[in-house]
Amino acid sequence: MRAFSYDRPDSVDAALRGVAGQPGTTTEAAVKFVAGGTNLLDLMKADVMRPERLVDISRLGLDRIEDTDDGGLRLGALARNADTAYDARVQARYPMLSKAILAGASAQLRNMATNGGNLLQRTRCYYFYDTGTPCNKREPGTGCGALTGVNRIHAILGASDSCIAVHPSDMCVALAALDAVVRVSGPKGERTIPFADFHRLPGDTPHIDSSLAADELITAIDLPVQGFADHSTYLKVRDRASYAFALVSVAAALKMDGQTIRTARLALGGVAHKPWRDPAAEAELTGKPASLETFREAARVLLRDAKGQSHNAFKIGLAERAIVRALAEAAGVEHS
C-alpha cells in the first residue's frame, strides 16, 4: 500500500468535487471513492492499485432500497450487499438477484461490500494480483501472463490477445440478466448506463474495466419491474462449496406461458471480462417449448464462439451443462 490521503465528505456534491476534473475512466483514476473497501483495499495492499487519495463515501446515505414509480426497485449504491440480498422486496420480486449475491464472497464481506462497489470489482486473475508477473490490465504493455500461463479460471468468451481475465462478480451476472440500469452522478449531472454497457470487453485496453468516468459516482442501480420471480435461478459452479469465485455461473430467467417460453434472459459469469449476455441465445429460447433440447440448443448458440486456453477448455462443456441445468431449474423442467 502506497501513501495516500483520506477524506470523508458529507455530501454527494462534496464527494464529486473530490474527483472533479479527473480524466479518463474510474479504473485509472488517482483519486478513488472507497465505501466497503473489500476489493480496493485488498488491491492496494497487493500494490496493484495505487490511488493517491481516497474519498470515503460510506456515509453519504445512498443506502436505501426503494420502489420506483414504474414498479421497479432502486438499490442504493451504498446499500450493503447483505442488506440487498435479504431485503424482502428483493427476495420476493428478484429472487435470482438475492441468490446471486448470497452465492458470492462471505457473510462478512457481504456485510461490508456495497452495491456500487460490487460493480467495480476487479478481476481475480492471478497475474493481475501478482506484481512479479506481467499483466496488461495492471501494467499496460507488459503482456498477458495468463494467455500462455496458468489459465484454468480464465475467459472463454470475448477475450483478446491482451487479456483473458474474467469479471468476478455474481451479483452483476444477475443484474445483467435483469437489464438493470446504473445511475451515476457526475459534473454534468445525472446519467444512466444500461447494464450491458457498464462493463466492457478487454480488446487492447484491458486496463479499463468499465465505462464509468473518473469524475462520476454510482448512486443507484435500478431494477426494472420484470423480476422473473416465478421462473429464474442463479447457478454457480466453483471449486469448493462456498467462498470461491465462479468457474462458471448462470443467471437464467424466463417468462413462461404454460410450457412455452415467452421471454428469456441468460447471463453467464466466470467466462468473460464482463457478465456475458447473448441476444441470439435468448432469441433461440423465445417462443420455444421449455425442454432440455431447447436449452441445449440455446447453450450451443451462446457458446458458438467460445474458445478455450490451455487449462480452461473444460469451461465450454461445463458452461453448456450449467446453462441447461439452470434453465431447467428456472422452467421447472425435470432434468433426467
Binding site: Y6, R8, V34, G36, G37, T38, L41, D42, L54, D56, S58, A107, Q108, L109, N111, M112
Partner: peptide, 12 residues
C-alpha cells in the same frame, strides 16, 4: 455486524 477488519481502514 460481522466484518473483516483487515479490509477496512481504522479512519473509516
Amino acid at each position: 455486524r460481522r466484518i473483516n477488519s483487515c479490509l477496512t481502514l481504522a479512519v473509516m
